[in-house]
Design a protein around this nucleic acid. Structure first.
Length: 780
DNA sequence: CAGTGAGCGAGCTTCCGCTTGACTT
């Protein structure tokens, strides 16, 4: 029997560590926290110094019983949870839940999973740091108080089941405020000038591209400039060459991994975490929830060996990175391959891609700088003081770029065609091929992606590596935010070209505003945010977390008592909550967007009982107002009068067919036609606002034909209809509401009643265990 | 997954962080 019990947080970690320690050590995992406040109640005794009321988490009861038994038989229990606030609390909760004898309980910590680190830790045990535990209790209690007092305010004032919290509400605020910035953005255009010059390079002519250092605000200025160029002489006045270097990015943390996997692999934040978890459990990478960029000495050594072996020693450069992130707790290493010599791994496509990314990033982080030579060529124009600048770049030594280059979010960067320049001399006269002034529009600030939101939250010190993905799914589940694509719109721009002394104007169109997988606030998200910001500005302040973190740090250092800190916070917070609940005012967000020219009635958009609604006419008038729902992508804040009025054109009578009206409308499942109380979905290419009578009849007849074809056979069996039907995915058998697959090779037409019954009986009962990434369907 | 096209009703909802699992067909 093992005489030592070691408890760590993760089972994968337990497995590895068990190998390092002798037979005397049994290593078990706590699977994270084992106790928490009750899920359904506040569980904080406010009158009694905010005493928390803990319970063993329901899913941990069995585990605790098991650990209790083992602990009883062990000489020493080693609590080896992570070395941060939460980890310390886990150890403390374990000691309480297991009723551990503190005489034979030891607390140990290690940041890297290596044999030496663990043996070293065993040699240096300590007690549980109760100050650190108190800091965690303060964090936990504060979050519960905020969440469980704020959410009910929303239920009363806005609608049931909404939620608010220290982290999620600020995440929503970021998205709502960005959207407001975008709505308020004033697009302006300028004229950007680029010149192309002929250069003789031996016998051939090559083109030198150069940008003008100034941009013009108006077309007149651009034209004026081009006119001056028509008579000008172009001379190289200066060639400046200077060395430059690029350094690799630090190894991955959770947040940077999520960002890069999003940019390079198009992974959602939760997908990245699921795949990383698989790699971790397979022993391929280190722990994936970390805020540290630190690599263990062993990892640095392995990387150095690998780089020297694969690329030569001039590519190796040992680098130590330090974490600058606000509030980082650094309980783990950076995310890296467990074995640097595994360039690739076995696994599915996603696992391979993510591993490749991690491997390259880690290796590159230990490689030398890339060395460049940058050249700036200045071209004078004889008739005007503006100057053209041509830029060149030559890679002298690739260094880390041999394996990896980090991506950036600003993909709309001007593609200054940097490359090698042809041979040029100072004083050289240049022969212009053409000069273009292109109208460019200013860009509004970008909408957040899931990953760029994580980046922002991390910068603000809000949330932790283990909560980034869940937070993003929560704000979507509550309906505050949607992640979607939006189609762009066309706009015109101009190009003015000077070529062979002639000026030519060309009008062109481009598509602007296309969005792919971006976060948009919904109406309810905007409404909740505006309400919270106006009444609970302290909690919604971007610095709120950073401020309370300072206090938690003081508690951890023993300079502050945790429940006194909470008391200070709560007294003002709770008063605030009561005041808001006390005033009878309900947030009334409505926008009067204009007057209907046909009826002269007011057009109002507002949040109704069942979501956003457009109202035509006031409530007080004799005639009842008309209502319509906005389209899915229309928002209360931005919908125009024209768009709103359009929504009243449906339902619309198209004409009559077989003595009954055909009515076009948009329902829950998209546009449709109703005729004789039957419904016909409209294909994408048909618009319910404009569809004609003939086309509508065509759709109705087509559907009828399909319905006839749908039925292959009907059998009667014990008062039930057994139907063989044609569905979208081929033939199937339907009995009342249940459907059964027909084996692939059988011809559905040939099926007899007995065949059908056989299939029905052989089909196993439904196993509805759907796997999803984001939805954790917890129902009690 | 198998083709849909709502309307008051009682009682419930909710936080953030740590970690993975799932009684049986």
């Amino acid at each position: 029997m093992a005489s030592n019990l070691v408890i760590v947080e993760s089972p994968a970690k337990a497995k590895t560590i068990e190998g390092f320690l002798g037979k005397d050590f049994l290593v078990k995992s706590s699977f994270g926290h084992v106790r928490d406040l009750y899920q359904k109640e506040l569980s904080i005794d406010i009158a009694n110094d905010f005493k928390p009321h803990y319970e063993i988490s329901p899913d941990k009861k069995k585990l605790i019983e098991e650990l209790k038994q083992i602990a009883k038989k062990s000489d020493t229990v080693w609590l080896a949870s992570d070395e941060d606030r939460e980890g310390e609390a886990i150890s403390w909760h374990l000691s309480e839940a297991l009723n551990l004898d503190m005489e034979k309980t030891k607390r140990i910590v290690f940041h890297e999973i290596t044999k030496t680190a663990i043996l070293e830790a065993i040699k240096n045990p300590r007690g549980i740091d109760l100050n650190l535990v108190d800091a965690q209790q303060a964090r936990r209690v504060l979050d519960r108080l905020v969440g469980f007092e704020l959410s009910p305010v929303l239920w009363k004032k806005i609608k049931p089941s909404l939620s608010a919290g220290r982290v999620q509400s600020v995440a929503v605020r970021l998205i709502v405020e960005r959207e407001k910035e975008i709505n308020a953005f004033n697009e302006i255009s300028t004229y950007k000038v680029t010149g192309q010059f002929f250069i003789n390079k031996g016998n051939e002519k090559v083109i030198l591209k150069a940008d003008l250092s100034t941009k013009f605000d108006t077309k007149e200025e651009a034209l004026n400039f081009l006119n001056k160029c028509a008579e000008a002489e172009f001379t190289i006045s200066d060639i400046e060459t200077k060395p430059a270097k690029k350094s690799p990015a630090p190894p991955f943390t959770t947040s940077t991994l999520q960002q890069e996997a999003s940019r390079k692999l198009n992974f959602s934040v939760s997908k990245t975490m699921v795949v990383a978890q698989q790699l971790y459990e397979a022993g391929k990478i280190t722990y994936m929830r970390t805020d540290s960029v630190n690599l263990s000495d062993m990892a640095i050594d392995l990387a150095k060996t690998e780089i020297t072996k694969s690329y030569g020693h001039e590519y190796s450069r040992v680098r130590k990175y330090t974490t600058k992130t606000k509030g980082a707790q650094e309980a783990h290493e950076a995310i890296r391959p467990t074995y640097m010599n595994n360039h690739t791994i076995e696994g599915d496509a996603a696992q391979k891609k993510l591993y490749d990314l991690i491997w390259k990033r880690t290796l590159a982080s230990q490689m030398s700088d890339a060395l460049l030579e940058k050249t700036n060529v200045t071209i004078d124009i004889s008739t005007t003081p503006e100057k053209f600048i041509a830029k060149g770049e030559v890679l002298k030594f690739d260094g880390f770029l041999k394996v990896y280059m980090e991506s950036t979010d600003d993909d709309i960067e001007d593609d200054e065609s940097k490359g090698m320049l042809p041979p040029l001399n100072k004083g050289q006269k240049l022969d212009p091929k053409q000069i273009d002034a292109i109208q460019k529009y200013s860009q509004h600030p970008p909408r957040y992606t899931e990953a760029s939101l994580v980046k922002k939250l991390e910068e603000l010190g809000i949330g932790r590596p283990s909560t980034y993905a869940p937070t993003i799914s929560t704000i979507q589940k509550r309906g505050y935010v949607v992640n979607e694509d939006r189609k762009g719109t066309e706009r015109n721009y101009e190009i003015i070209t000077l070529e062979e002394n002639k000026i030519k104007e060309t009008g062109k169109t481009e598509v602007t505003g296309t969005e792919k997988s971006k976060l948009f606030p919904t109406d309810i998200g905007t409404l909740v945010n505006d309400f919270l910001v106006s009444h609970f500005d302290r909690i919604l302040d971007y610095n709120f977390t950073a401020n309370v973190e300072k206090e938690f740090d003081k508690i951890a250092q023993g300079l502050k008592i945790w429940n006194e800190m909470i008391k200070g916070f709560y007294s003002t917070f709770h008063k605030n909550v009561e005041n808001v609940l006390g005033d009878s005012e309900r947030p009334n967000y409505e926008r009067h967007i204009g007057i209907d020219p046909k009826t002269g009635k007011n057009v109002i958009v507002r949040m109704g009982r069942f979501g956003p609604v457009i109202q035509l006419g006031d409530n007080s008038e004799e005639e009842k107002p008309r209502f319509a729902s906005p389209k899915k992508d229309q928002r209360i804040e931005t919908i125009t009068l024209e768009e709103a009025l359009k929504q009243f054109e449906l339902p619309r009578t198209i004409g009559s067919f077989e003595d009954e009206d055909m009515i076009a409308a948009i329902g829950k499942f998209g546009p449709y036609i109703r005729h004789k109380s039957a419904f016909y979905s409209l294909p994408k290419e048909d618009d319910p606002l404009s569809i004609g009578k003939d086309r509508a009849i065509e759709i109705i007849l087509a559907k009828r034909q399909k319905d006839i074809e749908k039925v292959i056979n009907i059998f009667k069996h014990e008062d039930k209809d057994i139907q063989v039907l044609n569905g979208r995915w081929g033939a199937y058998i339907a009995v009342e509401k249940t459907n059964y697959k027909i084996p692939k090779k059988t011809d559905p037409k040939s099926l007899t009643l007995d065949d059908c019954l056989k299939i029905i009986n052989e089909t196993p009962q439904e196993t509805s265990n759907k796997k999803t990434y984001s939805k954790t369907t917890k129902k009690k």
